[in-house]
Simulated scan of single mutants.
Amino acid sequence: MRVLIVDDHPLFREGLRAALASAVGIEVVGEAESVAEVPGAVATLDPDVVVMDLSLPDGSGLEATRRLTEQAAADGCGPVPVLMLTMADDDGSLLAALQAGARGYLVKGAGRDEVLHAVRTVAGGGAVFGSDIAARITTLLAGTRLREAGQLFPALTSREAEVLDLVARGLDNRRIARELFVAEKTVRNHVTHIFEKLHVATRAEAVARARDMGLGDS
């Protein structure tokens, strides 16, 4: 079983590689640190499963997963299975991972046996989720209200969530001000607070985060 590890933390990659390599029948064929490296690594190394972090230096593991799915569809073959292994334990990230095509989702800190079981299950065509996550999936998929920005980004106020959705739709601050019947300066303040809470530096990064979560649909 050939495994590709995608994570930008060298120490974590080293520990995960050691844990996987110690198991019979598993070979770590390579590592990647960014979204940009993933397609080439998959094409070159032909892994049976990709273990993917959610947060990468140049974007999201969700985007990398979607790219793999889209490329496989264009090539007329099935995508390489992706197991998300991440620090993110919020419902929005879990739902977005499912929508992106991930076959498994574990939170970092899961035990070695749980990780090995997940890798084998996903590589074999199954789906697997951490024991504390599985119980939430049915509720998540059933409730369309969970796609609302306020649910996906609980750190934001309801108004900030509304502004983020409009930003993700491509509206500039002037248009957003007209849509919400507020001053443009007020919108700028909301955007500043959104950047701070999402830990992003640019509008493009905020849009990418929002669209990863399914926001911005017209």
Rank of each mutant, 00 (worst) to 15 (best):
A183N: 14
G104N: 03
P57H: 03
R66A: 10
H199F: 09
G15D: 13
H9V: 14
A100N: 02
G59E: 06
G216S: 09
V28T: 02
F129E: 00
V38P: 02
L85V: 07
E63T: 15
R209A: 14
V163E: 02
A201L: 13
L95Y: 05
D217W: 08
A36G: 03
D58H: 03
V167P: 00
G78D: 15
D75M: 13
D46V: 13
A149S: 12
G143L: 13
V35I: 07
M213F: 13
E33R: 13
E148S: 14
R103N: 06
R169F: 10
V3C: 07
I133F: 03
I26H: 01
E160T: 07
R174N: 05
E14M: 15
D58R: 06
E114G: 04
A155R: 14
L83P: 00
E148F: 00
T139Y: 01
V122S: 08
N173S: 14
A149R: 00
A208N: 08
L140M: 07
D132P: 00
V38E: 06
E31T: 10
A43G: 05
A149N: 03
Q151V: 01
H193G: 11
T69N: 11
V38Q: 05
A88T: 01
S22H: 04
S22I: 04
L166Y: 07
A23K: 01
R174H: 04
P79Q: 08
R211S: 06
Q71Y: 03
F153K: 04
P47L: 11
L45I: 06
R174M: 08
E148Q: 15
L215F: 04
V128C: 11
G216P: 01
R188W: 02
G25W: 01
H193R: 15
D7V: 01
Q151P: 00
I194W: 08
A210P: 09
C77D: 05
R147F: 05
T138A: 15
A36R: 10
R112F: 00
R13G: 05
D7L: 08
E114Y: 02
V24D: 15
K108Y: 10
E14K: 13
L171H: 13
E14Q: 14
H193E: 15
R203S: 03
T202C: 08
G92D: 01
V115M: 09
A155H: 07
L94P: 01
D113A: 15
L62A: 02
A208P: 08
V80R: 08
P10C: 12
I5Q: 00
E14N: 12
V122M: 06
F181P: 00
G150M: 04
A88F: 05
Q71P: 01
E196V: 08
R67N: 07
T186E: 11
D212W: 03
D75I: 02
R112M: 06
D91N: 09
L68H: 06
G111M: 03
P47A: 11
